[in-house]
Design a protein around this nucleic acid. Structure first.
Length: 568
RNA sequence: GCGCCCGUAGCUCAGCAGGACAGAGCAACGGACUUCUAAUCCGUGGGCCAGAGGUUCGAAUCCUCUCGGGCGCACCA
């Protein structure tokens, strides 16, 4: 990876370590070894471009005040030809490095060469990782929580891809179990009701308008012929029919949201293939089950879970948990080296038992990472709106895309970390869609596109790598010296590190925040510096700069799943 | 009662895996378009980082407790 910031940090680290080593050899400092210190970017500009905290960390062992240590080190630093203009000791004992202002300008050349690959890392080393997300209940349309999960999961998967992982996006279809029973009973009740018969949706059933719609449609197509069919048989048919429709619809809605899954995995297939029975048998063989009250239990307490969990109910049906164990075993058996699940906060209690089950099967529970996503609280007309699909009044993912737009919705969700409790004011989002931050970042992209169009009209070419000798390229880029240009270039140099942090902390929202910072730096630049000027060289240099900005915005947008408009 | 998450500016949230005076957007107020898109920029005001202890040279960040909010604790998924 070509990362000028990482290079510079490494160079400064070497300079610091060399000086420190000399000090130790000379006997000026009494240290057994060099402490693990950091080179970081100080918050305040006056503190320079980078700072080392080594003196504070060495103070205790060296039995000297940090500032004194810092002075001993800086006295022995060799900075000639390193791009360092000035080193100073400041505050409690920081060593601050002031660099030549244009130290990072080379990043522009790198970006223009690497294009969509700028920011790509190899920290994943091609490791096979699965991200399972959304996995919405297929008994109805997807709600706001699913929307958040979709935005988060897809961006996370993209970040990991960018970081060098081999990522598979997977959706687990809960097409078995109790809820499917209730789904069938609900469909049947609506069917009978629509045909004029008295019928009641069972407790725990689905009251949504979509249930009625399914049956209305079915009646149009096939009439009342199911009145005389055996109830169990006709419910199976209804379920089959509606499930197919719902899954198609989920695929379509997610597609419109810019989310595509590599694998749609059916829970039912686990039951049918015998994998659920198999995994229960395996747990039993390993001695982790017992029978009580006519049910089969998993000894979850042996893995630090507060209570044991049922695997097979008294009625002989396996629980969701049993299927989920089989599912996760299957994930690892398919060769995934790392599995990430994104779950809603209402499932957080199931994390320990899932990990416990994996441990019981002999798998490494640390290879399963479960991201708990706090729920979305939806406001409408100034009131908390219930999100349950069972009320039939919930705002769906499709509604959201229609009202707010894909880009705004995806950007909004990825502006915050998974563990923030998110308040989503729908009225505000709709009303203020013009003021949504997503337009701010996209506008930067469109503005650059406009500049590039103007340049093309004037027959001014953005120099490519082959058009210029390296020294000429360097000369042009060194012309970018005004403050807004320097700031903008530094932001560009931040991108690889942003990817790294986003990937290692599983926090795609950092990418969204980064785009805001980059766009802000660009807009500031734009208001101060004109790109197309009478000065041919300066024009070329600035064209390269804005082209690089556009490229990085595009790369970040791709991760976030938002579009990069040429005009707005 | 037990467990997980959260509590930073009027509002929504950052704070780069402990660092130097706490940031951004929105909202409020005041400025900037004869020049590449003003969906922009520049400036002003606004904070005992919920509270109390502790660890550390150094805490919004780590630990403990208290208070407040959300979510779990089914032979539902």
């Amino acid at each position: 990876m070509k990362d000028v910031k990482a290079w510079m940090k490494e160079r400064l680290r070497r300079i610091t370590e060399d000086a420190l080593r000399r000090a130790i050899e000379e006997g000026a400092l009494n240290l057994a070894k060099i402490p693990e210190f950091t080179i970081e970017v100080p918050q305040a500009k006056e503190h320079g471009d980078f700072a080392a905290n080594v003196a504070m960390l060495a103070a205790r062992e060296a039995k000297m005040p940090p500032r004194r240590i810092a002075e001993i080190i800086t006295d022995r630093m060799e900075i000639a030809g390193s791009g360092v203009e000035k080193v100073e000791v400041a505050g409690p004992g920081f060593i601050n490095f002031h660099l030549e202002p244009t130290w990072a300008n080379g990043v522009i050349r790198i970006i223009l060469e690497e294009k969509e690959n700028y920011g790509r890392l190899d920290i994943g080393k091609g490791k096979k990782v699965q991200v399972e997300f959304v996995s919405a209940n297929p008994t109805g349309p997807m709600h706001m929580g699913n929307a958040r999960g979709a935005a988060l999961g897809d961006a996370l998967a993209s970040v990991l891809e960018m970081a060098g992982y081999d990522v598979t996006r997977e959706f687990y279809i809960n097409d078995a179990g109790n809820q499917i029973e209730n789904f069938g009973l609900s469909l049947e009740a609506r069917y009978l009701e629509l045909l004029g018969y008295e019928s009641q949706i069972p407790e725990g059933g689905y009251h949504g308008e979509d249930i009625k719609d399914h049956m209305r449609e079915l009646i149009e197509k096939e009439g009342d012929r199911f009145l005389s069919v055996d109830p169990a048989e006709r419910r199976a048919y209804f379920v089959e029919y509606a499930l197919k429709k719902n899954i198609e619809r989920m695929k379509r809605d997610l597609e419109n949201f810019g989310v595509r899954f590599d694998v749609w995995f059916s829970e039912r297939s686990l039951h049918e293939s015998g994998k659920v029975d198999e995994v229960i048998k395996l747990l039993t063989e390993r001695g982790y089950t017992y029978e009580k009250d006519g049910a089969l239990w998993f000894k979850a307490t042996e893995f630090g879970v507060p209570k044991d969990e049922v695997l097979i109910r008294q009625n002989g049906m396996p629980t969701y948990f049993a299927a989920d164990i089989a599912y996760h075993k299957d994930k690892f058996d398919r060769g995934f080296e790392w599995v990430i699940d994104i779950w809603g906060a209402d499932h957080h209690g199931h994390v320990p038992r899932m990990k416990g089950a994996l441990a019981a099967l002999g798998y490494d529970p640390d290879k399963l990472t479960i991201i708990i996503m706090q729920l979305v609280r939806l406001y409408r007309n100034g009131e908390i709106a219930r999100m349950s699909k069972r009320t039939g009044r919930a705002v769906t993912l499709a509604d959201l895309v229609e009202e707010v737009g894909k880009d705004a919705a995806r950007f909004f969700f990825n502006l915050r970390g998974a563990d923030t409790h998110l308040d989503f004011d729908l009225d505000l989002a709709v009303k203020q869609s013009e003021e949504n931050p997503v337009y701010y970042v996209q506008y930067a992209h469109a503005r650059i596109a406009s500049i590039l169009r103007q340049a093309a009209q004037q027959n001014v070419k953005v120099p490519e790598k082959d058009d210029l000798a390296p020294s000429e390229m360097e000369r042009l880029l060194s012309m970018l010296t005004c403050e807004t240009e320097i700031e903008l270039v530094k932001k560009l140099a931040d991108f690889p590190e942003t990817i790294r942090v986003a990937a290692t902390t599983l926090s795609p929202y950092r990418i969204a925040n980064y785009t805001l910072e980059l766009a802000s730096a660009f807009h500031s630049f734009y208001n101060v510096c004109r790109v197309l000027t009478g000065d041919e060289d300066l024009t070329k240099a600035r064209l390269m700069l804005v082209k690089a900005v556009q490229q990085v915005l595009k790369n970040a947008f791709k991760i976030l799943g938002i579009s990069a408009p040429e005009r707005m």
